[in-house]
Nucleic acid binder design. Structure first.
Lengths: 224, 224
DNA sequence: CCGTTTTGTTACCCAGATGTAACCGCTCAT
DNA sequence: ATGAGCGGTTACATCTGGGTAACAAAACGG
């Protein structure tokens, strides 16, 4: 698990890096905006922690740059009393924020929570109804049958549907969750992926029992 | 969108309720733990905001009780300097937290972010009288009958009528709300759509009980 | 490197959703 | 009474969105 930390305060950077390393995360440090963007591109971290006030490019710009390419969880750091910043950051697609000063333990807890929410860290098998998903192995089992291998995207799609089992998930949301960023014109991708997933998990892919279409809105996983 | 707020500080409760109401959320208030748990069971809110220090049952207990039955987003409120609490809360399944004191705007932004993350922004079922609309599933249920699928336009029309249940909505307004822009001469569209919707929701489409015509002005949804 | 797998793109089909037109029957003002 | 206006209904044309196939491009694995 690789964490990108961007902050211009050397001491704080060191402290955070130390704490996270202790907790056995890999840490990538950046002391200003441009360095953060570079680090993001070169290291492809799993999560980013960005200070809002940095020389070069502000945390906002970094956040925007990351969001243009990736859906990794982003946590913003800010000083007390600048709520305007936070609202803007959340609008830009940040997932969480922390107000300075904070204890390293708090940051750690928040990072864990973020990762858990993003479904990155949890590797235990998840199940609902007849569908049992093994994220580690990239496989599903339908009603106890043989495990079927899934590709990365198929897995992500199924994870999303499973997390909302029984309810319809809108195409737009799936698009964002699975691919990260897409102009909504790219429905064809989703169509294809659904089709391919159905070939793997449906007894009769032409008459889906599990992965059903909610015409005009999205798809849902039917569980009994 | 219904928000459950639990805090023993009456003033704060009032302030939060006010802010959220302004932002057109439905608010359910609770002044202590047991009241919060009761409110959760009776009102089935879409999101819960819980103070950790409350008489009766602590926020932890409420959080636990909610998590035992539901996966709605939970935000915890705490006073500065009690990070232990936060870690425990996150472990219990809380999704986010806020440190007192905070500005109402911040709380609002956080709630929005949480709802967005949970993907339940505007999907919760809406009901009035015998009509229960599920926007997410694109279905209606009339007096507990089987859900009926609606098309995009039918859904929009019914949403508009439901939002003004009991009152007549003018044809022009409906045209604008459902189609966006239309020269008001285009009443044929509305005629058609009303007709089609009646086929789906009226017991006897020829003698409408629910979706009635207000001659010369528009249509209204009759609720008891 | 090369072959394989995964992912993205393009094109086409079809059902169902939506738009358009014509007609019916009622009411009301002339 | 009668024709204009309005709403309801029927019938049909057109459009949209989802499913499928075939292929191209990219990523992966040896």
């Amino acid at each position: 698990m690789k964490v990108l930390i961007a902050d211009d305060d050397r001491d704080l950077l060191g402290l955070i890096a130390f704490t996270l390393t202790q907790a056995s995360y890999l840490v990538v440090k950046a002391a200003d905006g441009p360095a953060a963007i570079r680090a993001f591109e070169e290291e492809s971290p799993d999560i980013a922690v960005l200070d809002i006030n940095m020389p070069g490019a502000s945390g906002f710009q970094v956040c925007e740059a990351i969001r243009a390419k990736s859906r990794i969880p982003i946590m913003m750091l800010t000083v007390r009393g600048e709520e305007e910043d936070l609202i803007r950051a959340l609008d830009l697609g940040a997932d969480d924020y922390l107000t300075k000063p904070f204890s390293p333990r708090t940051l750690l807890a928040r990072i864990k929570a973020l990762l858990r929410r993003a479904g990155i860290e949890n590797n235990s098998p998840v199940a609902a109804g007849r569908v049992a998903l093994d994220v580690q192995e990239h496989t599903v089992r339908i009603s106890g049958g043989n495990p079927v291998r899934l590709t990365k995207l198929e897995l992500r799609l199924l994870q999303m549907l499973l997390a909302n089992a029984g309810r319809t998930v809108s195409s737009d949301r799936l698009l964002v969750q699975v691919w990260g960023h897409r102009n909504s014109g790219d429905r064809q991708l989703l169509k294809q992926l659904v089709h391919r997933l159905r070939q793997k998990i449906e007894a009769d892919p032409a008459a889906p029992q599990l992965l059903q279409t909610s015409a005009g809105s999205g798809y849902k996983l039917v569980v009994e």
